[in-house]
Amino acid sequence: MIQLTNIEKYYANKGVKNYVLRLVTTTINQGEFVSIMGPSGAGKSTLLNIIGMLEEPTYGTYHFMGEDVTSLSERKRIELYRNHIGFVFQAYHLIDEMTVYENIEAPLLYKKVGSAERASRIADLLDRFNIVAKKDLFPNQLSGGQQQLVGIARALAAQPSIILADEPTGNLQSAQAEEIMSLFKKLNEEEGITIIQVTHSEKNAQYGNRILHIADGVVKEDVAVLS
């Protein structure tokens, strides 16, 4: 599904190249649950952003579902966002002016899903995440964990084939974190959604089935998780 070949990323500062990623080559298949780990500043977020096409690599090739992403038009990329990629952020990034319901509805509107279909999907998600009672509240009226649930529900609404999550539990207590991790595991196992997450927690990484260890922009280790 994802094929990275010799991905490099550097920031030029006063003529000095500061490498963030060096010759990263890896393949992630449909249905995997990958955790990216490593020390702070290692380049984890950068790698995830490149996978999510939020940033461009300075060098290297990237194929997403068999398509070369570097030559992708803006319109095509947006189509990918609409149909295949769901993002989950550490800081939740819900839209403050929208209610819970509307936040979840937004990607469906962009995808031009019919209103009946929309209502049933949202009802389903609200129900599944146990936030039906909160549907008319605004994000600042929710706790952090609840906000992240909404964030995940939003990412799932468009029924993506892959979810990219950058420290999705970074701001949460361990109980809440566990809840979210088992949710990811369930999504991965039952619905076959590919999940790539960045995490600092060894425990969270155990929910997945593969761990990429990164240090100084280089993939040091690529190990499978035994369950």
Binding site: G52, L54, I78, E79, Y81, R82, N83, I85, F87, H93, L94, I95, D96, E97, A106, P107, Y110, K111, R154, A158
Partner: peptide, 10 residues
């Protein structure tokens, strides 16, 4: 933020 989020939502 709203704009950023909407962009990644497509």
């Amino acid at each position: 933020k709203e704009v950023g989020v909407k962009k990644v939502l497509g």
